[in-house]
Design a protein around this nucleic acid. Structure first.
Lengths: 200, 200
DNA sequence: GAGAGTTGTCAACGCTTGTTGACTTTCAAA
DNA sequence: TTTGAAAGTCAACAAGCGTTGACAACTCTC
């Protein structure tokens, strides 16, 4: 591996760890390059800009492959396993942390939301069958992450434990087992347009 | 009302609308004071610092009164009603937006987490009975907010609709109806100490 | 070994941020 | 009307940010 490739990788790795755990606007390029043991100016050289470096980390975000996963029980198994295995220390950032920390960022939020839509929401809607329950599935999945990562709630079971998996499973099942009366009116399955502005 | 009190209120109101919807570090004092129609320097005069202005807005965060609400059905009703009535436009920020936008902020995150613990988690634990299911209750509640406010998922039912309430209700019920085997080991009911550092 | 291209270093730039202190204006009490 | 505190204005500050371009050090080819 060439020397340039080494520094590129070092920057990308440290950028992912920091961006994904603390959020785009809460991390400076000087901090990233210091962690990578490299000069700040090399970010501009190799990635063009801070935004470019951030986007280079997005390739690491896993998703749901609706070809490999076709039924709901398999889906829930896959999600539970992904969560159980996701790293908790700062060293390797977890996928949901990326979403939670950056989805409402004024600069990169729209890109993150689009990416989540593509890699998660669209496959979920296809597997689960209707977008309402798919959205509730996302809500359940990310809700556990919020409680754990953003709020540090102590009542959440230790991640990786059988109990943690059981909690996830219970909420996810509830999301897809909505009675007909509770389902939203049918909607066009996830919009094709890119989200434009952040108006929470 | 004195003139000084008027400008104090104007600053506090605009600060709440902006801080709660976009997050502490994504809003500048110049933006807030411009929205309030006053000079930036008056923030320092009346609130000491940016942090002081932010903390002055926290009094508006509603919570759960475990004296008024003693059983789970009443709790769920209260939460569903709070969510249905929470304002969606930028003009008045919703309580959950405050949590989601600021819980992982490096500067005010710890204060927000402590406040949520005090105003929500402790009462929830008391009403629901054990901290595990109370944490899952929070997860379900905030998960819907993440899906709606952070990710802008279109599958979530229109807030305020009967369907939205039904969705909330289904998830909240699932959280408190965990079977015994899925419950975490009993823990000391929510820690008394303040959270210290943010290590997601 | 000379030269060309790659890689890394350094100092500075323009900009925005929170905060401060000196100043002027407003306004009610004496 | 004079006086003095209250309220508001203005310009500047130090610090941090992303970004740039000129320069030095290195590596490989001819």
């Amino acid at each position: 591996m060439s020397k340039a490739q080494q520094t590129r990788d070092a920057l990308r790795t440290q950028a992912r760890n920091l961006f994904w755990t603390r959020g785009y606007s809460n991390v400076s390029l000087r901090e990233i390059s210091a962690a990578a043991g490299v000069d700040v100016a090399l970010v501009s050289r190799y990635f063009g800009s801070k935004r470019g470096l951030f986007e280079a980390t997005l390739a690491d975000l896993p998703g749901i492959d609706s070809n490999a996963v076709s039924d709901v029980p398999t889906l829930i198994d896959a999600v539970v396993r992904l969560f159980a295995e996701a790293p908790r220390d700062g060293a390797h950032a977890s996928p949901t942390a990326l979403i939670l920390m950056n989805a409402h960022d004024p600069e990169v939020g729209a890109a993150i939301r689009d990416l989540y839509n593509e890699k998660w929401q669209v496959p979920l809607s296809r597997i689960i069958g209707d977008p309402g329950r798919a959205a509730l599935f996302s809500a359940a999945m990310l809700g556990v992450s919020v409680a754990e990562k953003s709020l540090h709630l102590t009542g959440i079971a230790p991640p990786g434990s059988a109990c943690y998996a059981a909690q996830m499973r219970a909420l996810l099942n509830a999301a897809v087992e909505l009675r007909a009366a509770e389902r939203p009116d049918p909607e066009p399955p996830t919009p094709p347009s890119r989200s434009t502005a952040a108006s929470p």
